[in-house]
Amino acid sequence: MFGKFLGLQLKAIGIFLSTSNHDQYLTEFLEDGGVLILLDILSHSLIKEADKAEALRLLLAVSNSGRDCKELICESHGVRVIAECLFMTKKADTRQAAGALLESLSNGNPKHQDQIYKSLIALMTCASPKVQQVVLHTLRTVQLKLKSADGSIVAPLLNMLRSLHLEVQHEAINLILDLKRQDVKATLLSGLVALLRPVTEEVQQQQQITEEAEMMKVTGSLPVFVQQAAAAKAIRLLAEEDQELCRELLSLGVIQHLLYAMGNREHTDAQIQASLALEHFVRSFPRIGEHVQRVMGSALFAAFMNRADAFHMKVDKRLAETLLSNQADTIKAPDGHMSDC
């Protein structure tokens, strides 16, 4: 295992296991403890990354050979070993091979599917953006095969929206869209709305009383503002896909929170994404437009409807204070349902 030709040996075994009639070679390899050796290679810190990637590719060939092989890998503590390897690696080849292997192990392997799913959720806490991207992409594929979503997925998924890497944000938002019909929908929607108005230690709403008026100020870190912008974007995409989701978001007070995000002069993208989301709600529910017009005033509302993506340039200090302190309540029709008149 520690010889300088380990990679060459693994490639040679791979040639045998990739032949069209490889059953005999595969049986001998498994009977001689091949899976355990490959997993042992992944566990050693002294073995080169290139050799670990080759070991992962061999395990992938074994996994693709059928359900019994998948179960053998999983029952040999393979999921934990592969997840740890993915968590620690700094090489693209190893990341991609580990992600492909976890995806393969989840296919046609109902006995261990839940274990793989929860391991991927746990991997979302990894600090490496490149690992996060692979994990989210693999998790999307696995999630689509499941009939339900685990509640533990929501918090780390929403935290992914803080990423400064667009690839990670893209995968996270796509996974959020995939979850819109799952049983975590309510928690996910309320979480997204809450992110529009951060109240963590990093971002706090502060009141400064002056002689003239009550001043509102937003303070915070870049990741929190990035998360605020990504939440607004996700809300818009969800609302555009489904009118019923629109109504659920309205019942959560999304309008008030979007107006608040539009007042964040510290982060332009948060203002733009919130404006685009609010524009969709206003065009879908004219009654909401009436309320937003009362908050902004007629002239600024006209400018907003003309170019929502450029409205942030109209937000001066005074308007920002108005948006930050707005008290837009949930808007309901006389019958108690959201009005779409």
Rank of each mutant, 00 (worst) to 15 (best):
I47A: 06
I82P: 02
S104P: 09
M160R: 11
L86R: 01
I209K: 15
M338A: 15
P286E: 05
V131W: 04
M88Y: 06
L245P: 03
L164V: 09
A230D: 11
D329F: 10
E244G: 10
L238P: 03
R294V: 12
V134K: 01
Q327A: 07
Q205V: 15
S106D: 01
L278P: 10
L60I: 01
L259C: 14
D150L: 06
K11Y: 08
L136N: 02
K314S: 15
N264D: 10
N174W: 08
F301K: 03
C246R: 15
R80E: 13
R283I: 13
L120T: 04
A122V: 11
Q204W: 06
A229K: 09
N159K: 15
K48A: 06
S104F: 00
K91Y: 02
R197D: 12
Q113K: 09
E248V: 06
A55P: 00
R265Y: 02
G66Y: 06
E214D: 14
K70S: 02
R265C: 09
G7M: 01
S339R: 09
A127C: 11
S163P: 01
I153M: 09
H257P: 08
K332H: 11
D114Y: 07
N264F: 02
L237G: 03
H77M: 06
I288A: 14
K52Q: 07
T219K: 11
R95S: 03
L17Q: 00
S221V: 05
E211C: 07
Q206A: 14
S76W: 04
D51G: 00
E211N: 12
V226M: 08
C85E: 03
A274F: 05
N159P: 00
P110F: 13
R80L: 13
A149D: 05
E241N: 13
C126S: 10
V315W: 04
R287H: 11
E248P: 04
L102P: 10
A50G: 09
I272G: 08
N326C: 07
V154T: 08
L166Y: 08
M216A: 13
I331L: 12
A274W: 03
N326D: 05
I176H: 04
